[in-house]
């Protein structure tokens, strides 16, 4: 199979995931009780029959469901989601404006969490047992800590008590530190658990005995051989990782009163601003698909067995 066809297959399946997610969102939003017109003008606004009709026409709400669905798919394909009910701007503009702060946050956590996880794993995977035990307890507590409370506590300590870091968004790096840590810590804790489990598992594999029997020093055995194997189970968490990251931005942006997609999402849900919600759903599906593609590449880098099967020779 040619590389072109492989890429094509991937793209089609990616498009299918986005389409399916968007369709789910469309169907879900049809189940919302109440008249969307009131979501547009506000629930206690008085609207006349004609105004009501005009709004329905303007947003295409008078069309049959299937037409609305096709129109929705058409907008999805072209990246436009219509106008926000509340903000009176195109959804694409709303999302584009809010994208950067969220990207900063998510990117920071994406870098920080695996880094922390690897560092802690390496530091606690020596021969002595107690660092592992301590670390395991810390991980358990961090994993069990809801990110909103973690954020609030970090704020209380570092901003209110110690006054080291700004309370709210200032736009500079300092105001990014606490939100990034809040987002990254629980993820890092889970990754550490998985990495350590993987490392200890890998160290029981026969190839480790072989490597030791070569006279290889212990650090080389651990980090040249075993750590790479430990990365494999961690990579399977990619879907969870993306989801937690995106879900986490909703909470972290609210705790730290930062602007961003998460904030917009929560607002849109509160205001029943359906075009914005649909836009967010489509955006996360695209991010998810892109992340999975990236992880597939990473898999192939780490594990040659998953690369294109060639040259299997008989003796």
């Amino acid at each position: 199979m040619g590389a072109v066809r492989l890429v094509a297959v991937r793209l089609v399946s990616a498009a299918l995931v986005v389409w399916a997610a968007a369709t789910c969102a469309f169907l879900v939003l049809q189940l919302i009780p109440g008249d969307p017109v009131y979501a547009i003008v506000g629930s206690d606004a008085l609207v006349s029959e004609e105004q009501h009709e005009a709004i329905r026409q303007q947003y295409g709400l008078d069309e049959p469901l299937i037409v609305q669905y096709l129109a929705y798919l058409g907008r999805l394909a072209t990246g436009r989601f219509g106008d926000s009910y509340q903000l009176q701007q195109p959804v694409a503009t709303v999302l584009a404006d809010q994208l950067w702060p969220t990207v900063q946050l998510a990117l920071g956590a994406t870098l920080l969490a695996p880094l922390l996880a690897v560092l802690v794993t390496v530091a606690t995977s020596g021969r002595a047992n107690w660092p592992r035990r301590v670390s395991a307890v810390v991980e358990l507590v961090v994993v069990s800590t809801p990110s909103f409370w973690l954020g609030i506590m970090l704020l209380t300590i570092f901003s209110f008590r110690l006054g080291w870091l700004p309370v709210a968004e200032t736009g500079d790096f300092a105001s990014l530190i606490l939100p990034t840590i809040t987002l990254a810590l629980p993820i890092a804790a889970v990754l550490t658990q998985v990495l350590r489990e993987g490392l200890l598992g890998a160290l029981e594999q026969p190839f480790v005995i072989t490597a030791r029997a070569r006279g290889l020093p212990e650090p080389a055995v651990r980090y040249r051989h075993a750590l790479r194997h430990a990365a494999l189970p961690a990579l399977t968490l990619a879907g969870w990782f993306t989801g937690t990251l995106l879900g986490g931005t909703v909470i972290v942006e609210n705790v730290f009163a930062r602007s961003g997609i998460g904030r917009v999402t929560l607002q849109a849900v509160g205001d029943r601003d359906l075009p914005v919600v649909q836009g967010v759903v489509a955006l996360s599906a695209v991010v998810f698909v892109a992340a999975s593609a990236l992880v597939d590449v990473l898999y192939a880098v780490v594990d040659p067995r998953l690369r294109k099967r060639t040259g299997v020779q008989a003796a």
Partner: peptide
């Protein structure tokens, strides 16, 4: 190890690092 005494294990598929 390796220099004076070497080890050949049962199944090379797992006894050599597959990665």
């Amino acid at each position: 190890r390796g220099r004076h005494i070497g080890l050949v294990a049962q199944d090379a598929l797992v006894a050599l690092d597959p990665l």
